[in-house]
Amino acid sequence: MQAQNGSGMIVKESLLIAIDFDGTIVDDGYPKIGSPKIFAFETMKRLQQDGHRLILWTYRSGRKLEEAVQFCADNGIEFYAVNSSYPEEVFDGKVSRKINADYFIDDRNIGGFIGWGKVYQILTNESPDEKLTKKKGLFSFLKR
């Protein structure tokens, strides 16, 4: 996303993006870990390179959560926070577990999961370069 600063220059805004695991980052295979969704890790890496902070936001807890976090780390993604709004937040049951994020990416949206290519296009207002699309495939813009 872009905005103008006080001097009229275009600057990218850093977004806080909460991302579900099962059915979104990987195919739903709970309690096992499914196969990675096409372009999931490439898109998340690109979003991080663009300066956005990613939160893993999942129903998983305990050992199953640790496995998901490790699976993502093994695929090059370290999250800003996990099931919390910021790294130091401690869930004590006294306040809502609802987290603060600019966007939530989840397969349980109305209409289902739209795919990682479309997610990136919506978040960045970018579309794939036509030359790259014809030569290397629709999602080649993620590999810049």
Score class of each variant (00 low, 15 high):
80 Y>W: 10
69 V>N: 08
24 T>Y: 08
9 M>N: 15
53 R>D: 09
134 K>C: 02
120 Y>T: 12
4 Q>N: 09
90 V>W: 00
94 K>I: 10
84 S>M: 05
128 P>R: 14
76 G>A: 00
113 F>T: 01
90 V>H: 06
31 P>R: 08
63 R>S: 15
39 F>C: 11
57 W>P: 01
125 N>L: 07
10 I>Y: 10
135 K>N: 06
70 Q>P: 04
34 G>W: 05
126 E>Q: 13
116 W>Q: 10
90 V>D: 01
122 I>E: 07
32 K>Q: 13
86 Y>G: 03
119 V>W: 12
57 W>M: 01
143 K>M: 09
86 Y>D: 05
132 L>Y: 14
137 G>A: 09
44 M>Y: 10
110 I>L: 10
112 G>V: 01
67 E>L: 07
114 I>C: 12
59 Y>F: 06
66 E>H: 06
77 I>K: 03
120 Y>R: 07
128 P>V: 15
30 Y>H: 12
134 K>W: 03
43 T>Y: 04
49 Q>S: 14
38 I>Q: 13
88 E>G: 14
110 I>V: 09
94 K>H: 14
38 I>M: 09
37 K>G: 04
113 F>Y: 08
101 A>R: 04
5 N>T: 08
5 N>F: 02
95 V>L: 14
130 E>Y: 13
76 G>Q: 02
115 G>F: 11
25 I>Q: 02
49 Q>D: 15
66 E>Q: 13
73 A>V: 01
138 L>W: 15
134 K>T: 10
54 L>Q: 02
77 I>W: 01
82 V>Y: 00
14 S>D: 07
96 S>C: 15
109 N>I: 00
1 M>Y: 14
21 F>C: 05
36 P>G: 10
31 P>K: 06
99 I>L: 01
3 A>W: 00
51 G>E: 02
139 F>T: 15
35 S>L: 14
19 I>N: 05
36 P>A: 14
107 D>F: 04
38 I>R: 13
114 I>F: 02
107 D>H: 03
106 D>I: 00
31 P>M: 11
143 K>W: 12
12 K>C: 11
55 I>Y: 03
137 G>C: 13
92 D>G: 12
101 A>D: 04
11 V>M: 11
124 T>A: 01
87 P>A: 08
140 S>T: 08
66 E>C: 00
57 W>G: 00
22 D>I: 05
108 R>I: 01
53 R>M: 08
81 A>M: 13
11 V>W: 06
94 K>A: 11
4 Q>E: 13
47 L>N: 06
31 P>A: 06
121 Q>L: 06
8 G>Y: 04
41 F>E: 03
104 F>N: 08
40 A>N: 01
119 V>S: 12
143 K>V: 05
73 A>N: 02
62 G>R: 05
38 I>A: 14
20 D>M: 11
54 L>I: 05
24 T>F: 09
48 Q>F: 01
88 E>C: 06
47 L>C: 07
